[in-house]
Design a protein around this nucleic acid. Structure first.
Lengths: 210, 210, 210, 210
DNA sequence: TATGAATGAGTATTCATTCAT
DNA sequence: AATGAATGAATACTCATTCAT
């Protein structure tokens, strides 16, 4: 019998893991950590339960991997579109919010993941307090860095950057998931206007005096 | 006839139900619906599991009752401090946010409930689509009503009242739960300033140009 | 406060016990021993569960009482209509079967009780082997006595009286419960014909050569 | 791909299901539906409880399967030995009764199942009224068909075939279970005589005049 | 690498029973 | 005598996990 080469196996392994994590994401945004069953994930991935356990030793490990994966993707995204982007802090915050909107139009699971994850990180990282802390707050802290710059520059109102970052992020996320229900396809005029509006609220607030 | 008068029994029943629902709230904000066990609720309430089932037939019924209870309290609160309050729309939105902050200082389970509930309502109300819809969006819709007035008056920027309400509420809630970690006692100068700041973000946004 | 006299109490007690046993019978014929709940019995009797326990210490005791009660009634009935009746053995067997039919027309719970009881006596009398034996076989043994006489007289075919009694009783009982479905009221010509037919099968069998 | 071939798995599944159903039968004839515990069945089968649930989703489903299985076996048996057998109706009824006796000597659980099932079918098929009806009466109806032929031929007395079938079956079954207590091994002269006698009662009745 | 049968530690739920009033 | 709140020991059922193949 011909043996698969080890590189081939390596490829299969990587692909399978991605496949499983992607399925886990879909299940997670619908049911959360406690409510998600390993069977659900397997089914969603079109694989057998046993195989999921072949790649991830426990449900906990699977979802911690999911969290790390998502956090990593989110961090990279923030780095590109926020931290390393060009422009003043407020321009970068605007831009970042726009990019997040665009992303949500493509895949609403991203903001939905973050809505759940904010509350459930403690359960998923039970017993790994540091990772929990590091992961839970990482995005907000990235934002806070830029907010702080803006405050120092006088571009943003003085205050606690953390609270401001929370407000910015909090104003954004629920509206990203709201897209879903409206099922607007990206790149339409309608979508652009909506993005514009959503983004504006988290920077300018609700008042009209400007 | 029973020795205990029927009013006494009525009182006992009411008190027990409250006691159980209050315990369920504590468990819920920590573990969510799927993660919460009826045993946890019983233990938290200092009662036996059997008694919880004496008052609520199933876990589902218990948590649906919890949701209805919380929604009702939230609705009343919104009525008093937002809908029926005095002042212009933006004044009322400011005032309501302040009152929510005060409430969160007393009992952080309120905002924490809403953070979870927004995502989990579908699971809890599985099979009761209308109740789900009604309950999930009720607060946001209350806010949207006032936002719409403000938009009509020209006090608030024109836009979709629902999106604006989402932004307002979203900017507020995560910061309310943030209080917890800081454990500031209400009625201090520090607390007042913090409230001021949090509230300002959801109405004025982050920019300083005003 | 006026005290109830002890005779009055005695009366109440007796009446309540009857009431409970009668309810237990109704529940029993529908659900059997294991399937019957004390709540069912209470509800059927229009009483509260606690009161049932006031009169019968355990579910086991309640149903053992039911069995004793039914057996006693059945025994008396057999004594009057079979053992102490007039006529030859076969005449008495005919008469007894007819009387059982009449009884079933009035209250089908009687034959239905016996159908269940035959199988369930062991469970109900668990740990009381003698009572079980005595009660389970008492009716059949009464019949066997008369059958034996008939065999000795040459009126009935020679054989094992127990087997014959089983056949007689077995041929009768399912048809008594069958009445129910047909809901024939007693004392009609139709009912009389039906009784005639049912009775005939258990004595004459199915063949026409007579 | 799995190492075990799918036929092997098929075989394992079939065997396990049989094993569980057989155990369920043993438990059922002793305790009935409500009294039977899934643990009992597992223990009787020498398997773990979890595995029982792996093959049957609920206790209800398990016992409905048991019923279907038994009914099917009974129906086939009736087809071979009664409906499709040779001879006149009464000869076939005699033959069928004999075969049932023989079967009971080998495995008394068969008649004992039918004694319980007649009463408990309604509970087991709760909510599936048609299946209940179909299954409860199927054997009796098979018998009634042959009885009716016999009546038409003039071989059996005129009457309601259903009542006659009930009488035939009812006279037979309790005596089949009676074998048990006597523990006679089949193929002895004694056993043959007993079968002869039992069978005779359900066709000829008790009278000697023939 | 992949499958699916098997296991066992929980978790929801039921129900007989007690007991204060 | 009567009620209904309270208890706890089962019992049905779920689901993460293991393991032989």
């Amino acid at each position: 019998m011909s043996q698969r080469s080890s590189e081939q196996n390596e490829d299969i392994r990587d692909e399978r893991k991605k496949q499983i994590l992607d399925a886990a994401l879909s299940v997670y945004v619908q049911k959360g950590y406690a409510g998600a069953e390993v069977s659900d994930v397997a089914e969603q991935a079109g694989l057998k339960r046993g195989l999921v356990y072949y790649y991830f030793n426990t449900k906990e490990e699977l979802f911690q991997s999911l969290f790390s994966w998502m956090i990593e993707k989110s961090r990279e995204f923030a780095k590109q579109n926020l931290l390393d982007a060009e422009g003043s802090p407020s321009e970068r915050l605007l831009n970042y919010a726009q990019q997040l909107c665009r992303g949500a139009l493509r895949d609403s699971r991203f903001p939905r993941f973050h809505m759940r994850a904010y509350e459930e990180a403690r359960e998923v990282y039970e017993g790994k307090e540091e990772e929990y802390i590091r992961n839970r707050y990482i995005l907000r802290d990235h934002i806070a860095v830029v907010v702080k710059q803006g405050m120092n520059d006088g571009e943003l109102r003085q205050g606690d950057p953390i609270l401001a970052a929370n407000a910015y992020w909090g104003a954004l996320i629920p509206n990203l998931t709201e897209y879903l229900g409206r099922k607007i396809s990206a790149d339409t005029v309608e979508a652009t206007a909506l993005v514009e509006e959503i983004v504006s609220y988290c920077l300018f607030g609700l008042l009209s005096i400007r």
